[in-house]
């Protein structure tokens, strides 16, 4: 399946543009946008941890990585990230 891109402005927050390559499970995901995330490099941890995930696992994985790595999100939430990824998987 080709890469799908979904763009969404988080209400009261920032813009998320997520690119997902998906065939039953996630092959790769790229989370882009004008949000803030500290520490910045941890975006790679979120993206890598989603490889192989099914749609139903996405929110759990994002929430877990954010907690485990002590990631601080500004302008987006684990829920909004997961929701846009799931939209791209439909």
């Amino acid at each position: 399946m080709p890469e799908r891109v979904v763009t969404e402005k988080v209400p009261g927050g920032k813009l998320l543009r997520i690119k997902v390559d998906y065939s039953g499970t996630i092959n790769s995901v790229k989370i882009t946008g004008d949000f803030f995330l500290h520490p910045e490099e941890a975006i790679n941890d979120i993206e890598k941890s989603l490889v192989g995930a099914k749609a139903d696992d996405v929110l759990g994985i994002v929430t877990r990585v954010v907690q485990e790595k002590g990631i601080e999100l500004i302008g987006v939430t684990p829920d909004s990230i997961a929701s846009v990824i799931r939209s791209a998987m439909q």
Binding site: R17, K30, I31, T32, G33, D34, F35, L37, E40
Partner: peptide, 9 residues
């Protein structure tokens, strides 16, 4: 551009 943005986008 911001750290998380795609330059081409």
């Amino acid at each position: 551009i911001g750290y998380f943005q795609s330059i081409e986008d």
